[in-house]
């Protein structure tokens, strides 16, 4: 796999759900094998910014020459990216990090909270292509902030909203808790979302005796370089010390994380 700085042209810009932007870019030629869950560092030219912005590829279609990124506007960098239009050129560094481990034949449950859903279209597609049964559990504040179920063809999609405007009223972790009862063992769980959601999910796993090694988490931490040199993206390791989200992750098994330390100091 080759990691390179490569230009990519914006082919399409759309709003896949309320508050989010999806940019479809020309696929960087160096990135023929983007693993689901891997990320790119996107250069931004917004005034007074300096660092690249890390984004997981939402999906990747090297044969079709296209790659998609879904994100929301949280600051000047993402606002600049969201303002790109068809024909604009972006500078991508990647693919970086470790994606999800999709080996095996067990059923898979993808648990997505908020913008954490952005990583899953490609993940679900890859799981389905491997002939696996896939359940997608997606949570958002309102129905408008859900990525449509049509983005997960072949999967069994269930949703939860804080305001009850679609699906279960409450947390996506409630959905998981209900579904998980009686299923302990024999499932692979892939998750991405705010830290409070992740820690709630881990609590459920403990209660239902689901081994944490069956859970893979796509972590989001503040990130500098993305290539292991700045040591800025440290996350607490269960064995003590820290691992680097950019190199050891972003997708890591939940038993490798010190969850007590994840509750403090991390962006939700």
């Amino acid at each position: 796999m080759s990691i390179a700085v490569a230009p990519a042209v914006v082919l399409e810009r759309s709003v896949p759900m309320a508050g989010a932007v999806e940019l479809v870019l020309s696929h960087p030629p160096s990135a023929v094998a983007v693993g689901p869950g891997q990320f790119f560092q996107l250069a931004v030219s917004a005034p007074h910014t300096i660092l690249r912005r890390p984004y997981s590829a939402a999906w990747s279609d090297p044969a079709g020459g296209r790659i998609g990124f879904i994100f929301n506007v949280v600051g000047t960098g993402s606002a600049w990216l969201a303002a790109r239009d068809e024909g604009d050129e972006l500078d991508l560094l990647g693919p970086l990090g470790r994606g999800f481990d999709l080996e095996g034949q067990r059923p898979a449950i993808c648990v997505a909270g908020g913008l954490g859903v952005a990583v899953f279209p490609g993940v679900v597609q890859a799981l389905i292509a491997r002939g696996r049964n896939v359940i997608v559990l997606q949570g958002a504040r309102t129905a408008a902030q859900l990525l449509p179920a049509s983005r997960f063809p072949g999967a069994d999609v269930h949703v939860a909203t804080d305001d009850g405007s679609a699906g279960h009223r409450g947390s996506v972790v409630d959905l998981f808790s209900n579904l998980g009862e009686g299923q302990s063992g024999g499932i692979d769980i892939l998750t991405c979302g705010p830290t409070p959601m992740l820690t709630a999910l881990i609590d459920v796993a403990h209660r239902q005796a689901i081994p944490l090694s069956d859970i893979q988490v796509a972590l989001e931490t503040p990130m500098g370089c993305g290539i292991g040199t700045c040591l800025g993206c440290a996350a607490p390791r269960a064995a003590g010390g820290y691992f680097l989200t950019c190199q050891d992750g972003p997708c890591v098994r939940a038993d490798r994380i010190e969850w007590e330390l994840m509750t403090d100091g991390f962006h939700g």
């Binding site: 007074h48 910014t49 300096i50 660092l51 931490t221 503040p222 990130m223 500098g224 700045c230 040591l231 800025g232 993206c233 440290a234 996350a235 607490p236 003590g240 010390g241 820290y242 330390l261 100091g265 991390f266 962006h267």
Partner: peptide, 20 residues
Amino acid sequence: HEGNAPIRIAETPSGMLNAI
């Protein structure tokens, strides 16, 4: 040395802070 607990870096105007 294991380094500092996160959060270790932050972007500031045209710069970055680090406490690795």
